[in-house]
Design a protein around this nucleic acid. Sequence first.
RNA 1: GCCGUCGUAGCUCAGUCGGUAGAGCGUCCGCCUGUUAAGCGGAAGGUCAACGGUUCGAGCCCGUUCGACGGCGCCA
Length: 429
Amino acid sequence: MQSVKQVLSGEMLGKPVNVRGWVYRIRSSGSIIFAVVRDSSGIIQVTIKKGVVPEPDFEAAASTGIESSVTVEGTLAEDERAPGGYEVRAISFAVVGPSEPFPITEYQSTELLLDQRHLWIRSREQTAVMKVKDSMLRGARNWFHENDYVEVTPPIITGVSAEDSTTLFQLKYFDRFAYLSQSAQFYLESLIYSCDRVWSLTPSFRAEKSKTPRHLTEFWNLEMEAAWVDNEGNMKVQEELVSAMLRSVVEERSPELRLLGRDPAALEKIAPPFERMSYSEAMDELQEKGCDVLWGSDLGAVEERELTMDKEHPVFIVNYPKELKPFYMKENPEDARTYKNSDLLAPEGYGEIIGGSERETDNALIIERLKDVGESLDKYQWYIDLRKYGSVPHSGFGLGMERVVKWVCGLEHIRDAIPFPRTIARVYP
RNA sequence: GCCGUCGUAGCUCAGUCGGUAGAGCGUCCGCCUGUUAAGCGGAAGGUCAACGGUUCGAGCCCGUUCGACGGCGCCA
């Protein structure tokens, strides 16, 4: 048995080959049938001729449809009329699992593709995206391992949130309520005292009613937290990690990137250091460009696009006003209006992919800020505890995997960066 | 949450001025030994999203509801 990729390499030219997969296209000219067979590695044309294959095999091929699973035995031939330049000339053909008429045809609407997501993920584009994601995850895991980070497994069911409490998914937890995790940050912060540097990959849940091409209600959050690291060190980790992920993809998935219309060479050029721009500088630039923004207003989708549209590399925006960010960030000693934090924006208008900061170590400030936003201190008591026993300067960040995949694959919508997207309007299939 | 667009055959869509519901693809049947999401001939296939209203008459006009998509806000 050979994979389609092996067959297409041509090394078995003139020799017997065995291929198995799913019917991608099938056409008949009466006594000759052309079937294009797909497996996870590619597609290849198979010719089935009357009189060459046994009659039952020919009948089976003649009556089979798109997406039926098949096995083919034949000879590999070079033929310029075949897509890819090679074809398998069958001497036997068998249908393993017949297919009813496939619901996804040449004519597709967004709605159909989302309703038939369980079938659409068989498409070549979706397959390519999954493989790119696979390589990025492995690239990240390898980078963390090489740099002495411990991969940890924080809980998904939590009783406390790192963000605004209105965006939590609540669930019944025996005789009380609990929440689906929005972020592992507080748990990672607890773990640095023993592990020094930790990271985790967990699903994160946001009940925000965001209806945009950048939001999922369930996404894969890649988070890191490290002791003895300041905000600048935090950014260095981010740019090296992202670059390592890109190298992994370019190395392993260049054909997939090309299928998606991405140039691997452009991604390969991305390397540290990434450009750094302060929030204040970003505001100046936006005002020069004629955007209607004032110091203190948040960077929305339009502003992020404006700042990154012409860039080929990711860019850090650092030192945001405190009002725009959560309570746990460390005050910037050079400008008390701002925090020591950074957002990493992907180029070409793709926008924010990472948010990170140095963390506040002063419990008095943390308590003051929590009181200011009307939070009860009770549920944060364990978090406040962390600063009582050998507090240490530390930093961390969260990277939205699907946002990075969206950028790297050049996708129009984040839902195509995950096989079964969960959005405000969809939990099916 | 706000703004916008859409909902007609299995799929993608047309349907003019309000007057008996259309095409392509797919499916089924027939023909075809080099097709490239092939070609030719034939057939089947409809609660026009739902409800209400206007009208002699509504796919079309009005209202309500539901659903979907696109954009914004909020955020990774």
